[in-house]
Design a protein around this nucleic acid. Structure first.
Length: 117
RNA sequence: CAGGUUGGCUGGGCGAUCGCGGUUCUGCGUUGUCGGGAUCGAGGAAAGUCCGCACUCCAUAGAGCACGGCGUCGGAUAGCACCCGGGGCGGGGAAGUCUCGUCACUUCUUGUGAUGAGAAACACGCCGAAAGGCGUGAACCUGCCGGAAAAGGGCCACAGAAACAAACAGCCGCUCCUCCUGCUCCCAUCUCCUUUUAGGAGAUGGGUCGGGGGUGAGGUGGUGAUGGUGAAAAGGUGGUGUAAGAGACCACCGGCAUCUGCCGUAAUGCGGAUGGCCAGGUAACCCCCGCCGGGAGCAAGGCCAAGCAGGAGCGAAAUCGUCUGUGGACGAUGGGAGACUGCUCGUCUCCGCAUGUGCCCUUCCCUCUUGUGGGAUGGGACAGUUCCGGGUAGGCUGCACCGAGCAGCGCGGCGACGCGCUGCCCAGAGAGAUGAUCGCACAGGCGGGCAACCGCCGGACAGAAUGCGGCUUACAGGCCAGCCUGAGGG
RNA sequence: UGGGGCAUGGUGCAAUGGCAGCACACCAGCCUUUGGAGCUGUGGAUCUUGGUUCGAAUCCAGGUGCCCCAG
């Protein structure tokens, strides 16, 4: 993931987690919030807590999420800040499972148009 | 070859496409949140953080106690309680089974677990008629190691007389009392005999002096394993000995102390002589002895930017005496501060240590070119410093390293490790870089099949964050090697 | 990163190295028309693995999990 699509600053994370809207899936949780700068391209942050497992499992979950969202970064509506939070089953899932879960969440958040696949 | 056991190495490979991080080179009418190329990119444990260091900051002249850690010998190392090689004492290896009953679970069959009873029980050696008893047992693994617990204290439940020092019961000697028995003696009665003023013998009854034996009670002394309980009862076995006993003595064995011989650097081991049996266990209980030990940690620390709110303490140089060139020096006394974590102290340092022969003001004195300069006195401010409080969570650095560095080869050493030569520069972020898909072989598991083979599943434990050494813990599979035991072949 | 502490029935806590207890809860019974309360009773545990010791919840070492503190 290129660095212009990344959410890095701690205050941004805090802001999105506090006032963003969340969408849940058994594998992933999506938290979305409109950015302060609407012209800015979409920014994504990835997180995995201790409940996701050991360090190996947490790293694998975050890599899966990054790989899953990578093809859609340029087609997403701009001006959104997203946080993807891994849930315990994600580390043992495949890339196709993660991608379908992610598409489901993005359509529910109306960030990705429904006709795009 | 089989079994056992240990150590070392490895820790999925190759290719294609897409994607990520660092370094470096490079392109542009477009200088970008741009594009292209090269190269590097997790581990043996990166983990736990149990030890030891490097590095950084703070504090620092000493001694003792406390506290904490360590504790066999030698070696290795920059260093290390855990590394390497020895030694000693234990434990495992090493004894595993069968039958029956009861209970629980259960795949419903005698399958698993618990429990009770019975039987059998590894190899070798010794004792024994037998039952049985005693001793030893490889490689290798594993635990511990000062005070041989003979400075002292504590504890040793239950049981047991008693848990370490004696008592109690017991045994035995002496003495006293009571009772019994029988001997000697005396008296009485009766009978018999004779050598007939008398004597003798026997029986019965009684008496008590003395002596013997026994029972019971008391006193006194001796004795130690007899008391069968325990995890543990004061060397073991056999004999002598004794009133009874006991290392009291003797033989053999075992242990200890002292002296000593040999191998070994040493611990230790193998012996010899003498002594003498006093000595229970526990120091992963206190304790004693010896050695070692400042504190904090890369969120250490340094620089920059931004931001906030300041406050308090100190901010000096005691008193007296002597000398003096009037700047000061020396000595004494008292007080304070400090000598770092807890305490104490002979003693030491300073009288501010870092910092002004600095600045302003009040009063007095001297000088005098009525400007000033010098001294004394009291007060204040600033710099500085300590503490408290407030603010910040951004950037650069430390930090990606020429190093206790890595790889290969050789040499020395049993080994930990060391030395030499050659080659290399080898991850480094800060929401945290290694992933995904496909293909091909190679291991592995499951199913089908006599087999060849076919189909499916599918990589163990696990992710760097200042670095290094050791330890501990987790770990599928594969490869290699050593040692021991047994069998077979040459 | 460093330091400190804890682990005992389902829960909260006790226990000089010597028979693991207490309270509440669960279950059963009694009482009550029934429930609650009350009374009586049963079952159930030392985080794990080794070691020291005659004997370990306790002492020592390794491991596991949890909590707290500091910057």
């Amino acid at each position: 993931m290129q660095s212009r699509f990344r959410l890095t600053r701690s205050e941004d994370f805090k802001r999105v987690r506090r006032i963003g809207k969340s969408y849940a899936h058994p594998l992933v949780v999506l938290v979305a919030q409109a950015s302060e700068n609407p012209a800015h391209s979409v920014r994504v942050g990835v997180a995995a807590g201790k409940t996701a497992g050991t360090a190996v499992h947490r790293n694998r979950a975050k890599r899966l999420l990054r790989e899953a969202i990578r093809p859609y970064l340029t087609s997403l509506a701009s001006g959104w800040d997203l946080i993807l939070i891994a849930r315990p089953g994600l580390a043992t899932a495949t890339l196709a499972d993660a991608r379908s879960a992610l598409l489901n969440l993005l359509r529910r958040a109306k960030i990705l148009p429904a006709d795009e696949s």
